[in-house]
Structures are given as structure tokens and as C-alpha cells.
Amino acid sequence: MNKRHLFLALSLFCFGFWTWTSAQESSSPPVEEKQIEESPDLSAEFSLLQEEVKKLRLAVEEESAKAVTPVTIQIPKINVDTAIEQVGLLENGQMGVPADEDQVGWFEPGVKPGSKGNAVIAGHVDSKTGPAVFYELDQLVAGDEIVIVDEAGNTLRFEVTKTERYETANAPIKEIFGATDKRNLNLITCSGTFGSAGYDERFVVYTELVDAEIPLADDVVLEIPTNVELRGTFLTWHAVRNDAVIGYRIYQVIDGENVHLASVPSHARKSIEVPDEAATYYVTAIDRLGNESSPSEATE
């Protein structure tokens, strides 16, 4: 079973752990199919052939294997500098918890910090004896720094983008654990009022990678499509000569916003009909891991 998708077995528990009901588990599609749909959903967008689907799976698995294994987390604003435990799923389907309330737990079956996707680290807010490691997590605001240190002492620096409080039953599983082409790290702890069923809220800190001391496995700079021209209502461009490129995305500029108009597989004709010959368009290249090139020169 692919580790990157075990988050689908989670449901919110204590400081942010999820499980699906047995009915949901029994109706879930096979992992092989789910992997392609979520890591990332390129097969549908670019109509990949079967051989390309296999290559995509291998590329995703290779990228995950080379990513950073976290051992320490540092949050300067709230004086956190502690070890990271690796936790997984318990026999009852719940996510494991750190054995030490002064340490945090990284969901090891999920995304590794620094990889594309949502890596998740959780920590206790308190214990029977007093405050725990994430007691002051709710003091973080956008712009604050989170540092992850790997086994070799290399650091990944994340920056807080937002914080949210959710009622236990309404926490968005896909937003916290789901697939994304960004390199996110989400921190979770308990919040709200404590009752017989535990805390009634979950506090989530969303962060995004801003700096890394080492090259990451899928740091790729793709060539930019060239010779992008608009001839009447037909947009044309030249292919990028790279076997890893599986397709192209076409964007239209509407009221200053770049709107994804269409996607074209690499084996198809590099030409599409566009809705407005007076509009501005540009094209990007996409590889098997979902990396996207910089935009081409815009049409005039």
C-alpha cells in the first residue's frame, strides 16, 4: 500500500487524528487507482497512456523515498525545540500519538516534510501534569517560522500562512492531509473546551516551505514553451524537448487573473482554438511529477 495515501484512513482524534468508518473503507477504490488520482491527478488531465501512468507512479515513489526524514522541530516564537517521533496507524485505525507529551509526532505513512503535499505533525496541548509541547501553538500567526532538521543536520524552513480552529466533526481532512503541488507542513493540536469526549476543537497551523539547505528530490526547472502565437482564434506553440514533459497548460488572462483554460497532452497537436482572439494567452509545460514551467511569453 502506498504510504502517501494512508491519510485517507484518518479521522480527528485528540489533537488532530482521523479515521474513516468501516463502511468508507470497504467502499474505497483500490490503492493503485487512488494513487494516480491524487499524486497528482495528471492521468485525467493529460489522458496519459498506460505506460505513462506506470512511470508517474515510479516517479512519485522515488521522490517520496528521497525526501527529508525529520528528527527535530524548532519554533522560535514559542520556544519549542524538540524531537520528532514517527507515528503511524494504530490497530483501531486511529493515528498514533507521541509517547512523550514534550515531543511531537510526524505521521510517517504520509508526506515527508519538504515533499510536495501536506506533511502533518501533531503535538499535545497539555497533559495531566500541565502544559505540553504545543500549549502555545495558538500564538503563531502568518509569517512566523517553523524549522525542521533532518538526520544530517540540514534544515527546512517553513513559514506560517494561516491558522484555523475547527469543530472536531468539521475539520477538513482533505485540506490538512490531502494532495497539493505545494510543499506544506501542517501542525495540529487540541483546542476549545475539554469534556468527556476530549477537546471539542482542533487548532491547525498551515505552513509552506520557503527555504531548504539541500536540493529536494523534485526540484526541477522545466524549459519554457516557445513560439507561442495567436493566429485568429488558434493558439499554437512549439513542444519542449524533454521526455519527462507529459503535457501543456494553456492560460488566459482575464481581468488581470491567469485562468487555466485547457490542458493538452504532449503527444497531441500543439494547437487549440481559443474563445477570444483579442485576449492574452500563455502556455506552460508539465512533467510527470506535476512540476510546472515558468509561463511562456504572452500573446499580444
Rank of each mutant, 00 (worst) to 15 (best):
N2S: 10
F7I: 02
L8A: 03
A9K: 07
F15A: 08
G16Q: 02
S28G: 01
P29E: 12
P30G: 03
I36E: 10
I36H: 01
E37Q: 09
S39E: 14
P40E: 03
S43G: 00
S43N: 06
K55A: 14
E63N: 10
S64H: 11
P70T: 11
K77Y: 07
N79I: 09
N79R: 11
V80N: 01
D81M: 08
T82G: 03
I84C: 05
I84T: 13
I84G: 02
G96M: 03
Q103G: 04
P109Q: 08
G117W: 13
N118I: 04
A119T: 14
A122P: 01
A122G: 13
S127K: 05
S127R: 07
T129E: 07
F134G: 04
E136S: 14
Q139E: 13
V141E: 14
N154E: 07
Y166V: 06
T168H: 15
I176E: 00
F177Q: 01
F177L: 08
N184V: 05
N184K: 08
T189Y: 01
C190G: 05
G195N: 13
G198F: 06
F203C: 10
F203Y: 11
V205A: 07
V205P: 06
Y206G: 05
L209M: 09
V210A: 12
V210S: 09
A217D: 05
D219Q: 15
E223K: 09
E223Y: 08
P225E: 15
L230M: 12
R231H: 11
I246V: 14
G247H: 06
I250E: 00
D255T: 04
D255H: 03
H260S: 00
H260E: 11
P265E: 12
S266Y: 06
E273H: 00
V274S: 09
Y281W: 00
D287Q: 06
L289I: 03
N291I: 04
S296R: 01
A298H: 02
